[in-house]
């Protein structure tokens, strides 16, 4: 075994596989390095939770939009010009004082990219995927989102066919804020359901 303290540890086998995959696909003319750069750029600049935040803020200020959003999430986000991947079948679930919603993908990492961007690491980790189903109240408390015993927790399991977005409750004391300012209050975690605003 060789160690090189000046250059860090050698790449892990999986990293070498990833590099080999890219080399081979490029050599075969199936994709170019520039294609990959362009795709990364696209995901970096055009996707993110800011789109979901805009949807939530609109629903807070416009009751008829809220109704349309809860009736057909995909159509309502398209109404705001939000297209993006992985929101072809978007279901929006609204929190209330009685019910708190939280989203998971127990099988892999299905997530509504078009409104939330790419999923964070913890969403993809086995502990979150297993525990949010088994003991959601305990897990949410550990994640900094303690809920009263009286609040019912509903867990939504995403799938290839259906993605979920949580509509958090509007925080108190925000009556005077503009829609844009309200959007600035909405976090990704609140739209996954692991935070209360």
């Amino acid at each position: 075994m060789t160690t090189d303290h000046h250059h860090g540890t050698p790449p892990a086998p999986v990293e070498r596989r990833a590099v080999a995959l890219e080399e081979l696909l490029v050599e075969q003319g199936l994709i170019s390095h520039e294609d990959i750069d362009a795709v990364q750029q696209e995901y970096e600049t055009q996707l993110g939770p800011m789109h979901g935040a805009r949807v939530v803020a609109r629903a807070w200020v416009d009751p008829s939009y809220r109704e349309r959003l809860l009736a057909n999430g995909t159509r309502a986000v398209h109404e705001l010009g939000i297209e993006g991947p992985e929101i072809e079948h978007l279901v929006v679930v609204a929190n209330s004082p009685e019910v708190h919603h939280v989203v998971v993908c127990t099988l892999c990492s299905c997530y509504p990219w078009g409104v939330l961007g790419l999923p964070p690491n913890w969403y993809k980790d086995p502990p979150y995927r297993a525990r949010v189903v088994r003991e959601p109240r305990v897990l949410l408390a550990e994640m900094g989102c303690p809920l009263e015993e009286s609040v019912e927790i509903q867990v939504w399991d995403s799938s290839a066919d259906c993605r979920y977005l949580v509509l958090p409750e509007r925080p108190a004391g925000t009556d005077g804020l503009s829609e844009e300012a309200l959007a600035g209050l909405v976090t990704r975690d609140s739209m996954v359901g692991v935070e209360v605003l």
Binding site: A18, E22, I31, D35, V39, Q40
Partner: peptide, 8 residues
């Protein structure tokens, strides 16, 4: 990178 590769 491997995310971008798959997406590409």
């Amino acid at each position: 990178r491997v995310f971008g590769l798959a997406a590409g």
